[in-house]
Amino acid sequence: MEIKTRSIRSLAYRCEEFLDESGRPRSISYPNSLALCILDALFMTGSHPTAIDNVVDRYTARHGGADGAKSLRYSIAAAGGSERWAREVICNLKPAHTQPGAMLRAEVVDRATRVMADHGIDTVDDLLAAVGDEPSTGRHANEVARAWKELPSQKSGISWRALLMVAGSDHFEIGYRVRGFFDRPFGSFPRMTDDEVLELISATADYLEVDDRVVKQIVWQVSHRRLRPDPKRKEFYLPYPLDDELDEEPDWWLGVYAPEVRNEAGEWSSIFEPEFRTASFESEEALESQRAFEPKGEFAPADEDETDWAAPYPLSGTTGAAPF
């Protein structure tokens, strides 16, 4: 399947919400603290993003934002054990799973620090060096990954992949959640293959002038609900027949990622105005194709100019866990 300009623009629009005005990522990462990486990864599954942020913020308020795995283990020991540490330091008694009698996630955190100690890992750089280019999950996974997945309730490997994401690793595995991220907005049928997903990510990174890793991190964290898109932000809509080339930009499209200009001119928002829903660069054949699928008769809108051509961005759901 050929990667279309429409898909690149759609992915760029979804990613630019998590880039600042200088193009730097606002996704979640802790390059200077393996302790925060471990906390974020182990509290991510089944938790509201606010609850994870609260755990990280409370630990940072007590110990700062540069602790390694060894300092995290010392913090738990100094508090008198994982249960007391959970009550007094991070103020979170969430269990590792939903079955009765489950241990606290704080205990899993303590065991995770022992895994790191067993493999001589204390910093983020130590972790990335230990993992290297080996697979992060599966039969041939790195020995650190296998040890992590043996932790209570971590067999799925999601928390391990979350750990690599916040640590800044190049590993990027396309699971069902990532596939779901690409299913709806990109008009791809049949479903995109892994190679096509990676090609689209690479093309979008070039378009935004950022590293591939930045787009991968945003995609993974949004698809796993660690990042929350603004539900009030309008969805980027381009007519389905549009398969134009990048060098045929309309006048109202900037063609490059220039947030300071976009913020002044409001160019990106202009695509949601009714007069832009049928852009001047569409061929007559494309327009006729689109009209064939528009509602007719009693189902047609009373005033075509009042049609809601931009549905609101879907709200990122929660798993029901209270953001305590």
Rank of each mutant, 00 (worst) to 15 (best):
A61Y: 02
G23W: 06
V256I: 14
T204V: 05
F324P: 07
S27L: 08
R226L: 13
A61G: 14
E275F: 02
E21T: 02
F272Q: 13
A130L: 03
A41N: 04
V219A: 03
T204D: 03
R87L: 09
H171E: 04
K70T: 10
R161E: 13
R161F: 00
I3M: 11
F172H: 07
T319M: 05
W85N: 03
V56Y: 00
H171A: 12
A167M: 03
V89H: 07
E260C: 00
V55P: 07
N142P: 01
D122E: 15
E107T: 15
G81Q: 10
G320A: 08
I52M: 02
S159V: 01
D243F: 00
A69W: 08
V109Y: 00
T113A: 08
A79I: 10
A77V: 13
K155I: 09
H140Q: 11
Q154S: 11
T45H: 07
E2G: 08
A286P: 01
E267D: 10
I174D: 09
V215E: 01
A162E: 03
G255Y: 01
D53W: 00
A300T: 05
E306V: 02
E17A: 15
A141N: 06
I76N: 11
V124H: 07
G46W: 08
F236Y: 14
A112G: 06
V256A: 13
L238K: 13
R277H: 12
L93A: 05
A78M: 12
P241G: 09
E248K: 14
D122Y: 07
H97N: 15
Q217T: 15
L254E: 13
A147F: 09
S280F: 02
L39W: 04
K234W: 11
V219E: 01
L208V: 10
V109L: 06
D126R: 00
D195L: 06
L104F: 07
V261E: 04
G255M: 01
G23R: 03
L34N: 11
S10L: 09
H224Q: 08
L128Y: 02
I174R: 09
L11Q: 03
V144F: 15
S71P: 00
G46S: 01
E17K: 10
T318G: 14
D57L: 10
L208M: 07
E143Y: 07
G81V: 07
T60V: 14
A69E: 04
